[in-house]
Amino acid sequence: MMATQLKVGDRLQAVTHEVTEDKMVEFEKVVWDRGRNSHSDINVAKADGIQRTIASGQNQMAFLHEMMERNFGDAWVYGGKISARYIHPVYAGDHLTANGLVTEVAVVDGKPRVTLQIWCETQDGRKTSAGTASAGQPADARSWIDGGKQAAA
């Protein structure tokens, strides 16, 4: 079955995760441990003028990635682009949802290209990041997982 081809106005299947203090600390260690920082240590956060630890912007980017992977498959993983700005902090306890809205479908270098508004928002509807992303039309293949044998979920 061919993956659904997107058109302007379509919404992507969203992705939601809870951000926890433990995950924030572990994320800092796993991604590239540079010691204590304002994402993992309240004392460093306060020294930076912030009263609470805040989740790394890269943590938000991870959720946006997951949304793009789920919706686009190989079309995202091989050739996807994203530009995001972190516009409000994310705290432990927030339930963060990554969203995407198709704003343009065009032919670029002879191939269809889907452009989207992307953003993350909390359970209260507050946007914490915003930007744009683009990829080819969604593909069934998830070849980074299984060498291309698995169809789209």
């Binding site: 994320f27 796993v30 991604v31 590239w32 890269q58 991870a62 980074w144």
Partner: peptide, 18 residues
Amino acid sequence: YRRVVDNPHAAYPTVAAR
């Protein structure tokens, strides 16, 4: 990386990275 972001198929593990 996949465990900490709750995504068992994350394609770019260290890239979201730094």
